[in-house]
Amino acid sequence: MRILIYLLLCLLLFSSSCFAKQPQQPDKKERCPVCGMFISPYRDWMGTILFKDDSQLFFDGAKDLFRYYFSLPNKNDSRTRDDIAEIYLTDYYSVRLLPVNQLFLVLGSDVSGPMGHEMIPVTGEEAAKTFAKDHNGQKIISFEQLTPQLIPKD
């Protein structure tokens, strides 16, 4: 019985990872639409938004990604937040792109990204607490709790 559950779980995991759209890796010319930086030298920080029409935008960090997210639809982009299929951010500890709902965001830490102060994505609450302790993080939030006011200013 237990084996069956495991098998089912495995199948579920496998299928979900199979059907969900996987983010592409940025090429050398790719730049952040918020600040214009090149993405590829700073892959440890990058975030990406996958739209339902299969287009994809790369950002040099969580901060710029959410700035863009909250500005949608803006004067350069008519798409709305409903057009977004998935948001991926790079987990601090494993340096892998993960969907944003698997991640916690640590605010006010002493770790700075390529654009200065950052909100740091960490997988799992345990790791997020460890991170906040190690790096003087002030606040741990999930994606649902994020408001534009919480995004670091610089």
């Binding site: 440890d44 500890y93 494993s94 340096v95």
Partner: peptide, 13 residues
Amino acid sequence: VYNEQEVSTLAKK
């Protein structure tokens, strides 16, 4: 260490 930023913190730990 996956993230090179974390190396010095890990070293301390």
